[in-house]
Computed example of a mutant assay.
Amino acid sequence: MPAEEPFETEINEYFNMHQRIEIVEVGPRDGLQNEKEIVSTFDKVELIRRAIDYGARRIEVASFVNPRRVPQMANAEEVVSALGEVPGVTRIGLVLNEMGAERALASGVDQLGAVAVASDSFGIRNQGQDSSDSVDVARRIVSMAREARKTAQVTIAVAFGCPFTGDVDPDHVIAMVGALAQAGPVEIALADTIGVAVPTQVAQLVTSVRKAIEPLPVRIHCHDTRNTGIANIWAAVEAGARTVDVSLGGLGGCPFAPGAAGNVATEDALYMLHRSGLATGLELDAAIRASVWLEQVMGKQLPSKLARAGNFFMQEIS
Rank of each mutant, 00 (worst) to 15 (best):
A287F: 03
E78H: 01
D130F: 07
G229A: 05
L248K: 00
V154W: 10
V39T: 14
N97S: 09
I174P: 01
E78C: 03
G108K: 01
P170K: 12
R58L: 08
M144A: 12
G100D: 09
V237H: 08
A181K: 15
K150F: 10
V61E: 01
R50G: 09
A191E: 06
A231C: 11
V26D: 06
V186I: 14
A157C: 13
A197I: 12
T225S: 15
P258K: 13
G128K: 10
A290I: 04
R91Y: 01
L94W: 04
V186M: 09
P255D: 12
V109E: 06
I288A: 06
V244R: 08
N232Q: 13
V109Q: 06
V177Q: 10
C222A: 15
D30K: 04
Q315V: 08
L294A: 11
W293H: 10
A104M: 08
F7A: 14
A51S: 15
T200S: 15
T193E: 05
S318W: 00
A148I: 00
V202P: 08
D224S: 12
H172V: 13
L32W: 00
R140I: 07
L180Q: 08
D169A: 11
R275I: 02
R29I: 03
D285T: 09
I23N: 03
E22K: 13
F160R: 09
P185N: 10
C254F: 12
F7W: 14
I156V: 15
G252I: 08
Q72G: 12
L190N: 02
V292S: 06
V117A: 09
I52E: 03
A235N: 12
A265K: 13
Q315C: 00
G253A: 07
Y54M: 06
L282D: 02
F7M: 03
N34Y: 04
G259Y: 12
H18F: 02
Q111T: 13
M99K: 15
V154R: 07
A51R: 05
V218N: 11
R103Y: 06
R219P: 01
G88W: 07
T151Q: 09
V89L: 11
D43G: 01
M298K: 01
I233K: 03
G84P: 03
A239F: 07
V80R: 02
R140A: 04
V135M: 13
M176H: 08
G55M: 08
I59M: 03
E316F: 00
R103T: 01
M144H: 02
R57A: 03
R91T: 07
A175F: 03
F7Q: 13
L278P: 08
V158N: 11
A3E: 14
R57V: 09
Q19R: 15
D30W: 00
G93W: 05
T9K: 14
Q72W: 11
Q296P: 00
E214R: 14
T165S: 15
P258T: 12
D224M: 10
